[in-house]
Design a protein around this nucleic acid. Sequence first.
DNA 1: GTCTATACCTCGATAGAC
DNA 2: GTCTATCGAGGTATAGAC
Lengths: 212, 212
Amino acid sequence: MSFPANYLIEAQTDKLKRDGDLTRITALQAAAAQISEVGFHKTTISNVAARAGISQSGLLHHFPSKSALLAAVLDQREQDDSDFLFGEGVTPMGWAAFDSLVALTARNATRPEWVRLFVLVAAEGTAPSHPAHDWVTRHYRSMRSWLTDAIRDGVANGEISEAAPIDALAAGTIALLDGLQQQWVLDPQSVPLVQTVRVHVEGLKRLWTPGS
Amino acid sequence: MSFPANYLIEAQTDKLKRDGDLTRITALQAAAAQISEVGFHKTTISNVAARAGISQSGLLHHFPSKSALLAAVLDQREQDDSDFLFGEGVTPMGWAAFDSLVALTARNATRPEWVRLFVLVAAEGTAPSHPAHDWVTRHYRSMRSWLTDAIRDGVANGEISEAAPIDALAAGTIALLDGLQQQWVLDPQSVPLVQTVRVHVEGLKRLWTPGS
DNA sequence: GTCTATACCTCGATAGAC
DNA sequence: GTCTATCGAGGTATAGAC
């Protein structure tokens, strides 16, 4: 039920790059691919193993269970996103936070597999019994928390109007991003992902920049 | 694979209310409840049957397969939503379309089960092999189509600025609604659903109403 | 129209050889 | 560290009595 929070997290940062644990990397990629196609519930460790070119029990030698495999995939991807957003040493604040979300979206537009995986796991993880439930809950809380802080910071700077509805802007912007990614994954032709996000952010700036 | 488009649709409008097909109604409610809790992949017809107070094969007598059961649930709920949005005889256009989306959201806030079901099925249905894939694709296309038409109509009326980025407003607003519902389902305390949608729509009006 | 029984399949995880 | 073999559970759908 509960989800080992930082399961294998050091395995990635250290071990993975150290002695070239090739099969582990391959397995993680295979798992990500499979989950992104059919979701966690419908992926089978046999299929993942086959994609990775090993047997089912060979896979279970590296990851003790199906849930542990999911945990490893999620932590790896979140680390990657986090590096992109906050890796520059300074956490973007004020309108810059919104700009970096646009940048993240542009990056996601080149990684449909990860977007698909996130859309599926975020929805599945809605159920309290899902092995990723805690991960998903934490993910959204921390995104909203970061973005509200960023807006508050902008207000303190005078960059953002004091009348700005902080929580609504944070939750709403994240919602728009995710909802749009879902539409995009379902029907890429019909939805200009980055452009639509950009229009939203520009609208917010026009609305909530003081004296404009 | 493909999804019988209007499967059993007349069964609902006519038959359901006619001779009191109680078990069918009960089964549909049980299925909706189960799917909303764990998604379609993880619901089992045995569980649905148990909730409905009949045996598994008793359930399969009314719905030939698990997919057909899902189809019936989706059609029933969509009909319900559609009646709410368009049932007044006139299809809302211009800013009124956005207002009716706010009203729909307010209604959804009282129906967490349906919201949960939608969030789950919309994400699962992202996969082309999912039995609801066609339904979900059609749903989003028709929502976007209705809303872009509504905006275009508002522009023609002079109610909405000619500079309004029509497609981005339509896709973005729908995305914000759905993304927000997902956050709300995951963590109701943290997300004021209706209020956040209202703020978004008010922002759009301020931005894109001519001469304001 | 509802039941019991069951055929047939697939899955996650374990045991144990190499 | 990887394999084969297998256990035990749980899934959809069908057969056939009532």
